[in-house]
């Protein structure tokens, strides 16, 4: 699966639904295998006003869509865009039929020059989060092929929850997160390898996109 995600911050957030409609229609004409275009929910941090996520069967389809989408995101109405293009990484689904849930994506940037073995370990530990935190229903951790925005995003950590409480409660408050995984992110920990600037974005979804 070839995926594209754009987190769009608008100059005037009131225009979010008009832009969402335009993007949604464009994705339909480009045969997106899956798409999710929705306003972000309160609590997102550097997550934009609009979350736009697409999956295609091949790289060419994705590239064509990206080229068609770019002008829509280059207007004065758009203040900034963070985004990634990537192929699906390893993941899992404990609830593939999840409906009316919450989709969350974290864009992160691992420092350049980090020992690849350490990156592998970070990835393996991150992918283990759903084992300890069952509120994560479906998930996928991928490496970015292309990045745009505030950082050269290296990873895309996607999860789906039954509701926002699953993200704000069990995901954030379980000790596997704050006492284990977070050391890769925490500037006070010597193991830190991830830049402090993150994009944490989530929105409502009708059906699973993972």
């Amino acid at each position: 699966m070839y995926k594209l995600t754009r987190l769009v911050t608008l100059a005037h957030p009131a225009s979010v639904s008009a832009l969402a409609d335009e993007i949604h229609a464009l994705a339909k004409t480009h045969s997106a295998y899956r798409q999710l275009v929705a306003p972000t929910l309160a609590g997102s941090h550097f997550g934009g006003d609009l979350l736009a996520h697409f999956a295609f069967d091949d790289a060419m389809q994705r590239s064509d869509f990206d080229a068609a989408l770019a002008p829509l995101l280059a207007t004065p109405a758009v203040a900034s865009v963070d985004g990634v293009a990537y192929q699906s990484g390893l993941g899992g689904r404990s609830d593939p039929g999840l409906a009316n849930g919450v989709y969350r994506v974290l864009l992160l940037s691992v420092d350049e020059g980090i020992d690849p073995a350490l990156v592998d370990r970070f990835e393996a530990e991150t992918r283990t989060m759903p084992y300890y935190i069952p509120a994560i229903r479906n998930w996928q951790l991928s490496r970015a092929d292309e990045a745009t925005g505030a950082r050269r995003w290296t990873h895309v950590w996607e999860q789906e929850y039954a509701d926002a409480a699953g993200l704000m409660g069990p995901y954030m408050m379980h000790p596997y997160h704050w006492a284990r995984i977070d050391r890769w992110f925490d500037p006070e920990c010597p193991e830190r390898i991830v830049d402090a600037r993150l994009c944490h974005s989530f929105c409502a979804m009708d059906a699973s996109v993972l």
């Binding site: 069990p170 379980h174 000790p175 704050w178 006492a179 925490d186 010597p190």
Partner: peptide, 18 residues
């Protein structure tokens, strides 16, 4: 240098019940 986070064993169950 190391920094790590811990609890008393008796608190583990409640910490994980989130």
């Amino acid at each position: 240098r190391r920094r790590f986070f811990a609890s008393a064993p008796a608190d583990i169950e409640r910490l994980c019940d989130v």
